[in-house]
């Protein structure tokens, strides 16, 4: 069971949260300009790293707000939690 720190509510059990997958995937600013391959990359392709992963969580059974986290996908250990719109700790990767 993961133990997750909601940036607003503090530490809670995993069961209170929903998972939103990879974070920082930006919706294309000019959708009409995209090729099919670029659309496919935006919609379907994922980094899926073995190691540190920046991902989205939502505190479904709590404040219902989204936030980001950095977690190691091998050990499942969380390295950081940060609010939407905030820079990821450790800077861009």
């Amino acid at each position: 069971m993961l133990y997750i720190q909601c940036p607003w509510c503090g530490w809670r059990d995993e069961t209170e949260f929903g998972y939103g997958g990879e974070a920082h995937i930006e919706r294309p600013k000019d959708p009409d300009a995209l090729s099919d391959a670029e659309w496919a990359d935006y919609l379907f392709m994922r980094t899926n790293p073995r190691g540190l992963h920046r991902e989205r969580w939502v505190h479904t059974a709590g404040c219902r707000r989204w936030f980001n986290a950095i977690r190691d996908t091998e050990t499942y250990e969380f390295k950081a939690f940060y609010r939407m719109g905030e820079e990821p700790p450790g800077g861009e990767k």
Partner: peptide, 13 residues
Amino acid sequence: DKYNGYGQKGSLT
């Protein structure tokens, strides 16, 4: 399990 993971372990929930 809902989250990405390579650890060959999951959550009890």
